Amino acid sequence: MFNQYDIEVINIINHMDRYVVFYQTAVTGSFTRAAERLFMTQPSVTYAIKQLEEELQASLFVRKSKGVELTEEGSALLQCVAPAIRLLEEGRRAVAQYGDLERGEIRIGASEAVIKHYLLDAIESFHSAHPNIRFGFRHGRTRDIRQMLLEGGADIGLIHLRQDEDAAQLQIHAEWPVELIFISAPSFLPLSEEPRHPKELLKLPMITLSARSSSRAYAEDLASAYGVKLQSEMEVGSVDLLLELTRMGFGCAIVNRKYAEGGLRTGSLIEIPVGTELPAWRITLVSSSSRALPAAARAFLQLMSA
């Protein structure tokens, strides 16, 4: 139940337009000029002032031949109204700065590997154009990033999706096909001499990401499709560590070709050719379909989608 103070505050909010009319009339000293500033008719301004005077039971202006002057009551009211109007104007300008990309933050949910290989160029380009926009990174696996987006913990995300996987509650803005390959250390060189069937390779000791990762789920689903139980020799938490342990000869791995390009180029890693096409996978740029995006995130999405 509202008390008297609550009722008075609600009444002020409901009649805020009258106080704005009062402020403009006071600073211009004219009903006509106040009407011009507010894109109103002069009778509408006069009526709003009359209503405010009746509400406050006080005379706020003295009508002169050339405009109006504040009464003592009007001067007292202006001292209180003016700071509030200026504060509202500062708030409007502050919000406009977000729309003009003069300030703001873009919260991105993605794994470190995805950020490194798919986002850095766009981030650099966007930062050059809008240096006052901050970037905040929320690291996680695909399922974690989905949750962040749905709960408002991130604005946009890059997640792994198989070709037939549902993206319910997410809006897709762009996507990139992923070429997955089997890799190993040069000590497994005989494996690279001729194409091998995935069923044969999946029986080898595998280095995988953690059990909750989408790439681990992909490897397990692939093994299951061939009637093989995946042998995770080592379970790691990052792509960089997976590549290093593979390079050291601890086992084979299934990885995005883009992530392994450096090692393949130097020869510290080798690609094991497979005799059949692996199921399609993709990296998808998404946001929540039920949440409005801030201006900076919308601008970044336009850059990424171009």
Score class of each variant (00 low, 15 high):
Asn3Cys: 07
Ile7Cys: 02
Ile10Tyr: 04
Asn14Ser: 13
Val21Thr: 11
Val21Gly: 07
Phe22Val: 12
Gln24Pro: 00
Thr25Glu: 02
Ala26Ile: 05
Thr28His: 11
Gly29Tyr: 09
Ser30Tyr: 04
Thr32Leu: 08
Arg37Val: 09
Ser44Tyr: 10
Ser44Asn: 10
Val45Tyr: 09
Leu52Ala: 11
Glu55Leu: 15
Glu55Trp: 13
Gln57Glu: 15
Ser59His: 13
Phe61Leu: 07
Arg63Ser: 13
Lys66Asp: 15
Ala82Asp: 15
Gly91Tyr: 03
Ala96Arg: 03
Asp100Arg: 10
Ile106Glu: 00
Arg107Ile: 01
Ile108Asn: 05
Glu112Phe: 02
Val114Pro: 07
Val114Leu: 09
Glu124Phe: 08
Phe126Asp: 04
His127Val: 00
His127Met: 00
Ala129Asn: 13
Arg134Ser: 08
Gly140Phe: 00
Leu149Val: 04
Ile156Ser: 02
Gln169Phe: 13
Gln171His: 12
Ala174Asn: 02
Val178Phe: 07
Leu180Asn: 15
Ile181Asp: 04
Arg196Val: 00
Lys199Cys: 04
Leu201Asn: 08
Leu202Trp: 07
Ile207Gln: 14
Thr208Gly: 12
Ser210Thr: 15
Ala211Lys: 13
Arg216Cys: 15
Leu222Tyr: 08
Ala225Thr: 10
Gly227Asp: 05
Ser232Ile: 08
Val239Ile: 10
Gly249Arg: 01
Val255Pro: 05
Thr266Asn: 14
Ile270Val: 15
Gly275Lys: 11
Pro279Asp: 01
Ala280Asn: 06
Ile283Phe: 06
Arg291His: 07
Ala292Gly: 06
Ala295Met: 01
Arg298Ser: 04
Gln302Glu: 06
